[in-house]
């Protein structure tokens, strides 16, 4: 009997260890999956898609780059906030919401809080339709926008609201909306860069247009992996001319170990790497034209 009892106890212990160890890191193969995303026979895990969604640059970064390059604020390039009924389906609305979020990033970085009120109102209407309005405290945000002294708090609250909403959508398995919001945000950022570069084609702005290559490839991979849905297949088709233009751009990265230094007690790593962008002939102008065309097709 003792032996039998020992066996049962051992079995229970094994089950117990099995249960506690099943939460291991499933991300080991994420990079491989992402690298192979363009192969249609590769099944992509939800984890890989989540990682892709999370890795897109925020609209704040794009706006800071534009501001640092010495460009003035232009309200002309923002999406019109009137006639929101042009966004019919929940997919259209999710994409528009992302784009309005992109505009909010641009408005916030230039501290044009008086313009923000209309954009907050548009985001509010779209988020109510998508049933994700609980992530935004619109009363407080509009109050902050009316008082230009609270622009930092408005920026932070906008970022937090979009982050929480995106996290919720992914956790609830509503990845399709999450992807479209990210796509809308990216497209609006790429449009703003292109619009400004169209007027001021400096080396800096040329490079900023060309470096969208990685984002276009990533968004294309996501759209293709979801192309069983007609809406996503159609978006992938619309993105294709831009993708083909970006295929002509070559980005060479020379990675070097960073230099570590302490500045006023702060630890700073100085990147010593180098990026060389090869975009021959008129390709950057073609990229600008195609990006503007795509954004206006989808958002106007």
């Amino acid at each position: 009997m003792n032996r039998k009892m020992t066996n049962i106890f051992a079995a229970l212990l094994l089950v117990s260890f099995g249960l506690t160890s099943c939460g291991g890191d499933s991300k080991n193969s994420v990079e491989d999956q992402l690298n192979n995303l363009d192969q249609s026979d590769v099944k992509v895990s939800k984890d890989a898609i989540d990682q892709l969604i999370q890795s897109f640059p925020s609209p704040i970064e794009t706006s800071i780059i534009i501001k640092k390059a010495g460009n003035d604020f232009s309200s002309e390039l923002l999406i019109p906030t009137k006639k929101l009924d042009r966004f019919v389906s929940s997919y259209d609305k999710a994409m528009a919401m992302g784009a309005f979020g992109g505009d909010m990033g641009y408005i916030n970085i230039y501290e044009k809080s008086f313009v923000a009120i209309d954009y907050l109102a548009a985001i509010r209407l779209l988020s109510v339709d998508l049933e994700i309005d609980r992530f935004f405290n619109f009363e407080d945000m509009i109050r902050m926008a009316k008082s230009s002294s609270n622009i930092d708090s408005l920026q932070q609250m906008s970022t937090e609201s979009f982050n929480n909403m995106e996290k919720y959508l992914r956790e609830k398995g509503r990845d399709e909306l999450s992807v479209l919001i990210v796509f809308g945000t990216w497209l609006e950022g790429a449009y703003i860069v292109s619009y400004i570069a169209n007027d001021n084609l400096s080396v800096e702005m040329k490079n900023r247009v060309a470096e969208q290559k990685e984002s276009v490839e990533k968004i294309n991979n996501i759209l293709v992996s979801a192309s069983k849905d007609k809406y996503f297949a159609n978006l992938a088709r619309q993105l294709k001319p831009l993708l083909e233009l970006y295929n002509k751009v070559k980005i060479e990265k020379i990675m070097r170990e960073p230099e570590m230094t302490e500045v006023n007690g702060e630890l700073v790593f100085i990147d010593k790497s180098e990026t060389i962008i090869h975009a021959e002939g008129n390709i950057v102008q073609e990229l600008i034209n195609e990006t503007i065309k795509l954004r206006n097709q989808l958002m106007k």
Binding site: E214, M255, E266, L267, V268, F269, I270, D271, S273
Partner: peptide, 23 residues
């Protein structure tokens, strides 16, 4: 590219910055 822990000095930093040169 950056870390909050200097293993050689066994020192933790409350934050670290990266001056990025590569997108």
């Amino acid at each position: 590219l950056g870390t909050s822990y200097n293993k050689a000095a066994s020192k933790h930093y409350p934050s670290f910055d990266i001056n990025c040169k590569t997108t």
